[in-house]
Simulated scan of single mutants.
Amino acid sequence: MTDSPVRPYCAAKPRIVRPLPEGLVAVRQRLVRLMAQKWVNGTVLHYAFREGPEPQRQAVRSAFEEWKDLGIGLGFQEVDEPGEAEVRISFDQADGSWSYVGRDVLAIGTQAPTMNFGWDLTDEYGRTTALHEIGHTMGLPHEHQNPFAGIVWDEARVYEFFAAAPNHWSPETTHHNVLRKLGQDEVEGSTWDPDSVMQYAFPEGLIKEPARYQPGISPPGGLSGKDTEWVRTFYPVLPDALPALEPFRSTPLTLAPGEQADFEITPDASRKYQVATFGAADTTLVLFEEVDAELRFLAGDDDSGEDRNSSLSAKLFRGRRYVVRVRLAWAGQSGDTAIMLW
């Protein structure tokens, strides 16, 4: 994250691993795990500050805007009440900087923080820190843990370095945030980006291989070209006009893993409705209601790894606008799936 070896580092929280049934084929298990932390595109993540001086808050706001200004479908909206936010931000200076990863924030109690900043954010290192932690919340892991990086560590020196000031990390924290290689079911692609905002800076002596990084790694800070490419690919801008999901009409879905279909619902009667997918696919299904020109989460379901279909039920009102989004993790053996409203 910087070229200074004496800076403190992000200590991301351990992932909350969803148990999966035994016997899933390897490709299905990988795709389910890969999508588990990613948000349905078009989601508006609401964030709230639990405390903190205004300059630090403004630095975080600016970092959210920097991600959003890349032109993506994921939205960010500040709210006053932490209980109304998926992302709750603290500034505990004794707790370092960290975030939960992706949708793991939904498993955290509404009175607890999901992100913390433990040092000043108003300099360039602070800007990169804010971008880094928001990257975690969007579903990005640490880049230096990419299994395709080929990094061979001097593990004894790594543990020694992170146990010293200013980090004072336990061996478990060092292993989780540095030495543990991510599984191939936790990363997209097959390349390593040493310039990524999710990549730590490392001083000389911690890396044995690749040889050219023995003197250390010094990412330039900020978002790299590959960071930009990744977020635009996974969270592309969504069209303003969406196809209608008509009641009692099955709509086939032709999606690749990670792709998404979006539909508009405009009920002609106020009543309880059901929305569900059909087929053997693993999907995440989310329903939003438009309130004051903003889409608000109404209901959601995820059948990934289970022998059932995503399904949700909600009362919809005539004259209001709703949007349903379905993201596919695994298409099943046949590759066929569909969605229906009734």
Rank of each mutant, 00 (worst) to 15 (best):
D69Q: 15
R15D: 07
F148L: 01
E51Q: 11
V291H: 11
V101L: 10
W342E: 12
P239I: 13
R127I: 10
G225A: 15
E51S: 13
A94Y: 11
G135K: 02
H142Y: 02
P55W: 12
L121M: 08
V231Y: 03
V326L: 07
R308T: 14
D123F: 09
T114A: 06
N146W: 04
R296Q: 15
T277P: 08
A26G: 00
P210L: 09
D185H: 00
P243C: 05
A241R: 15
G135F: 01
F248E: 15
A329W: 11
G126R: 06
A331E: 12
L285R: 14
R33K: 07
V60M: 04
A165L: 08
Y273M: 10
W342H: 11
G258V: 03
M340V: 14
P8D: 01
F297I: 13
D154P: 00
W67P: 13
P5D: 01
G83Y: 10
L255I: 06
G225M: 09
I108W: 02
P21K: 05
L341E: 04
E229T: 13
G319P: 04
P215C: 07
H175T: 14
D95T: 01
I134E: 03
A280L: 08
R88Q: 10
E229V: 08
V323R: 15
L341G: 08
S170A: 09
